[in-house]
Amino acid sequence: MVIGGLERTTRVFTTYTILALFVAFCLFPFLWMIDTSLKPVAEVRSLNPSFWIVHPTLDNFRRVLADDNFPIYFRNSVIVAGGSTIFTLIVSTFCGYALSRFPRQRLTQAVGSALLVSQMIPGVLILAPIYIIMRRLGLLSTFEALILVYCAFAMPLCCFMLKGFFDTIPRELEEAAELDGCSRLGFIYRILIPLSAPGILANGIFCFVTAWNEFLFGYVLINDEARRTLTPGIMVFKGPHLTDWGALMAASVLAVVPVALFFVNLQRFLIDGLTAGAVKG
């Protein structure tokens, strides 16, 4: 190898130090959440908070799951987040493709600027108009309402990100595919999407997490307990005069852990996708 031994040792040392710091920084509040979720009430409210639990208990989890709505909230969040991810990716793949390949067309430029402006509207102010739209469409208290809204939020960023990824795929590849008799849709499906898999995956993760965590529209557009999503469901433990920290944290842990585990697996897939892309490119 051309990179020297000393440089490599320093690099390994720095890498591990930086990683350790990052892991601690990222994990700390999460560990505190897990820790709190396992504490009895008397230890949660303490003047000397510590990670050490004298009497660990599963009581908080019991309280959360005693509310039989919680598993339903979870299912609803999976449907809404999954649905909006798929929908957003379809919409923004086509849009990103057009932004990347026909940047000089008027229509493309118009849509591009519209998307840009739509990123700039503060959510609090469009709450009421969106509520009115959803009511007129008969979509209040439905998953479709949230799927559409989350798509509208994530779409501009996804379109621009994917445009960036598609820009790196040479046009010659497309021309060659066209000469080989490959249709445009065939090109998008067989060449463009596989080659941009890491980018699409990253955007998919972005859409999913945005939808999974959203709170404001989740509670405003849903007037039906059976359709409620997780984040508003977690927040009921912040009562009018008292926050039930144990239950709030237990509910959050139940919401976060599956997604985190999902990521551990996606991570592998992401690396595979990147390697595959690198080999082909």
Binding site: C26, L27, V209, T231, I234, F263
Partner: peptide, 12 residues
């Protein structure tokens, strides 16, 4: 692990 902050809802 580094992605964990991002999956915790902002309100929480």
């Amino acid at each position: 692990v580094i992605l964990i902050p991002w999956v915790i809802p902002i309100v929480v």
